[in-house]
Write a protein that binds this DNA or RNA. Structure first.
Lengths: 112, 112
DNA sequence: AAAATAGGTGACCATATGGTCACATGTCAA
DNA sequence: TTGACATGTGACCATATGGTCACCTATTTT
């Protein structure tokens, strides 16, 4: 029960990952970092305000890091919180097995 | 945009992880697997129905696997979807660096 | 067979969340 | 310095989500 409350902090990370649009924004930044709001906006079927709100959520969660330059704001993906999610439920010992299993699954699925 | 829609499937995994109670249930199963509903219920301040609903969501997402025996139902943690989340935004090359960084962070924080 | 135990369903309600709009600020170019 | 560009804010609304309750089924025990 202690854990229950202590962990409430990373609520923001999981809440941020819960929305498909936000995950897609992370995908875009994963493919190529340093994008501006306008650039991201054009990739999603949504108004600028919606995208901004999503980016705000991602930034608050620490999943996206920004850097301003003049009137532009560049967005970068931060993988650290993702790794922490991983480490929460996959310990060092089982990691090898699980990773191998997932890799195998991917191979089998792409082979077809 | 293709990715955007193709990935809609794992919506369930992220939605499942979005709730603190569900994450706590995963913590409980991570600590010791094979728990029954009644056992999990007593660890959370919530009615049995709430816990059941959460377990259902976790099961639908594939994060929890169950096995019935008589009138009891045992719950087990499945780490595979967690690993898939990891692999989506952390590639093989940066994994080493990120993992080392997170480990270092943990050391520094527990040292104090 | 009756009672107790373990789990399950559908409806219901308060609140949280995603998305848009009107309006506003700061920066660059002509 | 005027206009265009890039990003920001607060209010607002429809829908999704978490939690409870009344009621129900299946299995074990006495």
């Amino acid at each position: 029960m202690v854990t229950y409350f202590r962990r409430m902090d990373d609520d923001r990370v999981f809440k941020a990952l819960a929305d498909p649009t936000r995950r897609f924004l992370l995908d875009l930044l994963f493919a190529r970092e340093g994008r501006t709001l306008g650039e991201l906006e054009s990739a999603v079927e949504m108004t600028r305000y919606g995208v901004m709100k999503h980016l705000r959520v991602l930034e608050d969660a620490g999943l996206v890091i920004t850097r301003r330059s003049g009137r532009e704001k560049f967005h970068f993906l931060n993988p650290v919180p993702i790794r922490q999610v991983h480490d929460r439920w996959i310990d060092k010992y089982t990691e090898r097995h699980v990773a191998a299993l997932v890799d195998l699954k991917n191979e089998l699925e792409t082979e077809r």
